[in-house]
């Protein structure tokens, strides 16, 4: 009986340990408006777009805007260019500096 209590306690402890295991994924989860920080190494013309998991652009957040080097923040309200919600899934926010992609933030969007 004592042995079974030890085994069951061990299993419960293990499950707790597993659930507490690292879940800090290298992507953000967004259920509402989300802020994305990015750093520019130099100043220049910046474009920021959002693409879905089919690499199709669903939203232009910044278009041909002159920005200085340093930390910047862009906000996405999880809507596409037509103001519609494009659906749950994996999205990428891409920052272009003078036409070159310099930063990618992956977002798991789950609003519904």
């Amino acid at each position: 009986m004592k042995r079974w209590i030890i085994v069951i306690t061990g299993i419960v402890f293990s499950l707790l340990l597993t659930s507490c295991d690292s879940t800090s994924y290298p992507f953000m989860t967004a259920i509402d408006t989300v802020d994305i920080d990015y750093t520019l190494d130099s100043s220049g013309t910046v474009d920021v777009t959002v693409e879905n998991s089919y690499m199709t652009e669903v939203r232009t957040l910044i278009s041909s805007e002159e920005q200085e080097a340093g930390l910047h923040t862009v906000t996405w309200d999880l809507l596409d260019d037509e103001g519609e919600y494009p659906g749950d899934g994996l999205y990428t926010v891409e920052v272009f500096l003078n036409g070159d992609r310099v930063f990618v933030q992956i977002l798991e969007v789950n609003r519904q």
Binding site: P26, M55, T92, I106
Partner: peptide, 16 residues
């Protein structure tokens, strides 16, 4: 080719 491009994009976003 599209899947490989998408995989490259995800890898650029620090996802292995």
């Amino acid at each position: 080719s599209d899947e490989r491009d998408y995989s490259d994009l995800l890898n650029e976003g620090d996802l292995d």
